[in-house]
């Protein structure tokens, strides 16, 4: 599935709030077409890393490139879809229909002062149908269930036809059955529509059969590689994989090992 071209490349990235570093010496890349799970305990710097990738924060030292361009020069933000963790905690009384929320995903693509055309509305409709919410087109978003709302936010991210979709713990507050459907939908987007996925999650079990790559973060990049390698490592280090006690494999060391 994945190619050699890296959509995201991060080198020697450091970031700190006040005096404390939340990200230290991060080296990371994500191949085009991959489905990568970014895991790590609370406070491990996952959200900070996402904010840096999305250009919401600026790196204090190190380099981030997106689609082969330095992030400071990157302009095509519509290539990146983002579903935030907070999306679920929006004001449910907000008077907006599913159609209006999804259409807002086209804001950047259309550009300043441009208004939605017939084709754009058609695209909105197709996207809403694609996530299985066709019948709720004109419904206020607050009237939908948690799982359905999550789909609305996915549709909003997908409507601009992104090449990379970033999801920050999207299944928080979604029940078990809907989570399975949700992962299947992500799998379909990745396999059949060629969208590169970066999923921040606590639920490694739920996605382990879907993802192609894994990155474990705890301020430093503890593991970064293909899923098979991760599984092998998991077998070797059957306990303590998820957190502090994993022997720190340097990113470089590990990748070199993987290439052999």
């Amino acid at each position: 599935m994945s190619s050699n071209y890296s959509i995201i490349e991060i080198e020697r990235l450091y970031y700190r709030y006040d005096r404390e570093y939340v990200l230290e010496d991060i080296n990371f890349f994500q191949p085009e077409g991959s489905f990568l799970a970014l895991v790590g305990p609370n406070g491990s710097g996952k959200s900070t890393l996402l904010k840096l990738i999305l250009g919401l924060l600026r790196p204090q030292s190190g380099e981030i490139s997106i689609f082969g361009e330095k992030i400071s020069q990157f302009k095509n933000w519509e290539w990146i879809g983002f579903v935030s963790q907070k999306a679920n905690s929006f004001n449910t009384g907000f008077p907006a229909t599913v159609q209006e929320v999804v259409a807002s995903g086209l804001t950047k693509k259309l550009g300043l002062f441009k208004r939605m055309g017939k084709k754009d509305w058609q695209r909105v409709k197709e996207t809403i149908d694609a996530v299985g919410l066709g019948e709720f087109y004109h419904r206020n978003i607050g009237e939908l269930s948690g799982g359905q709302q999550q789909r609305v936010f996915i549709a909003r991210a997908l409507v601009s036809k992104p090449k990379l979709l970033i999801l920050d713990e999207p299944t928080v507050g979604v029940d078990a059955k809907n989570i399975r459907d949700f992962y299947s939908m992500l799998d379909d987007l990745n396999r059949n529509h060629g969208i590169t996925l970066l999923l921040v999650t606590h639920d490694m079990e739920g996605v382990s059969d879907k993802v192609t790559h894994v990155a474990c973060l705890n301020k430093k990049m503890i593991f970064h590689g293909k899923m098979e390698e991760f599984n092998k490592l998991k077998a070797d280090e059957s306990s303590h994989l998820y957190g502090y006690s994993l022997p720190i494999l340097s990113h470089k060391h590990h990748l070199e090992g993987a290439e052999k």
Partner: peptide, 15 residues
């Protein structure tokens, strides 16, 4: 609209 509905999304869209 996007600013009112979801400020973080507005930022992430590069607005």
């Amino acid at each position: 609209f996007i600013l009112s509905f979801d400020e973080e999304h507005a930022r992430a869209s590069g607005l």
